[in-house]
Write a protein that binds this DNA or RNA. Structure first.
Lengths: 247, 247
DNA sequence: CGGGGTGTTGACGCATGTCAAGTATGGTGG
DNA sequence: CCACCATACTTGACATGCGTCAACACCCCG
């Protein structure tokens, strides 16, 4: 398991390193990026529909979610973001935000000015490509969620989401073996999978009694990875996680 | 209503022009892009999950859809693409495709080599940004579809989808006033909204009897734009269509 | 020790799925 | 020009997964 990075800049660098080998010049530029950190509490809005941000934020610690609310007041969670993610990278090229982003745990965030990112992209096309790629991976996750919500039953949806979070946390060193911290309430889980909180509760009970998950507080353990993967029809291809070639 | 563009290159140029004013140098470079056109019939696979394409394709004529199939064999249509779109732009930076793309009408496609696009992006960062932006808009559409499928009832979902297609066709000059050609079968409509074909049929009947749509073959007319927009809770913000400032 | 957020449970209803059988429709070959 | 077929669309009867409502239990934090 990797050690935690020390600065937001290190986090960005480590993330991009997982895509391709950075040149020392590129690494230098990232090291010099000005990133303002800020702490926020649980359930705080970070950005809102209609905003026109002049900066992006990197999650250093904590979880956030992207969500939209229908005219009827129903909330869909569109994405869950974990440390290392830049949830509103899209705002670089889309002026007006079409989503809300809120914290679902206390968070430490690192803010980066758009103007700095523009410069970075212009000078280092490979970094531009890497950031572009980052947005494409999130796009791919949206597509899988569409399949999940559109075609699978509640049981599979929840299993699928749990598998996804497991792997994404593993990729940033926040899960080891079978367990990880998943600080998501049942209501949030429900909004992310398009079911009701009551039904989410029943599905979780079914998963527990089928031996696919066990939970203690928000610590989740997956005793049988194969089985929950099957239950969720989970195939990690869509996460586009580069295979680490062991040294 | 605009006149139809004459070449794939003109189409690309017109599309990018709608985002920002191209310099003559940029326009020149686009004009010189090598694009191979090919015609295909209805229901042909263009690319498939697992492919590693070395080119992207532009839709010159016709409609395509992006879709994924669950382990149970259920198909979710993730996106519908119309002339002017480049449905697999993502393959530029994600090696392995996580989706299938098929024609839903006969199509004329223009294929562009990745290597040519890489060069273009490196030389003209503004064009890179415009293409990036293009993928971000599609991403935004995925998010709205998630809200649509996750939180709205079947009636609203279908109304919403119809509104979206209407506006996107209008943006490329393929819809005028209230009518447009929507060559999508009820089965496809069902797969795109996460309902069954039988239910899609009943919803369409309801929309007709409520006076929100009228159809003749695949020609759809929306007699009351306000009303169907309300029924679908449709707010076009997420399409990020630049407002044309009338001269 | 009190109170708000979270999790749990049961009874009941409904939107949507499923199954099964039709009826257009449009293209093709004789 | 008609017979035929495949594909698309319709319709009705019935089944069910999930939603809704309404309590209640838990538990951390102040």
């Amino acid at each position: 398991m990797m050690t935690a990075p020390h600065s937001p800049n290190d986090m960005m660098i480590r993330k991009l390193e997982s895509i391709f080998k950075l040149t020392s010049e590129e690494e230098q530029a990232l090291q010099e990026l000005s990133i303002q950190t800020r702490d926020i509490g649980t359930n705080q809005d970070i950005v809102r529909v209609g905003d026109q941000p002049s900066q992006c934020f990197l999650i250093v610690e904590g979880f956030t979610c992207v969500h939209k609310v229908s005219a009827e007041g129903k909330r869909q969670i569109i994405a869950i973001h974990v440390p290392g993610d830049v949830p509103d990278l899209q705002s670089l090229h889309l002026q007006v935000l079409d989503i809300n982003i809120s914290s679902i745990t206390p968070c430490k965030l690192g803010f980066i000015k758009h103007t700095d990112l523009y410069q970075l992209c212009e000078r280092y096309p490979r970094l531009a490509a890497a950031l572009w790629r980052e947005t494409l991976v999130h796009s791919s996750i949206f597509r899988e969620w569409l399949l999940n919500i559109g075609q699978r039953d509640a049981y599979s949806r929840v299993a699928h989401l749990i598998c996804e979070i497991m792997l994404r946390l593993k990729a940033v060193g926040l899960a080891d073996g079978q367990s990880f911290e998943m600080p998501v309430t049942q209501a949030e889980l429900a909004d992310a999978t398009g079911i009701t909180p009551v039904h989410a509760n029943r599905v979780l009970q079914a998963l527990r009694s089928d031996g696919l998950i066990s939970t203690h507080k928000h610590q989740v353990t997956l005793p049988d990875w194969e089985k929950i993967q099957q239950a969720g029809e989970f195939d990690p291809l869509y996460l586009h996680i580069k295979q680490e070639v062991p040294a």
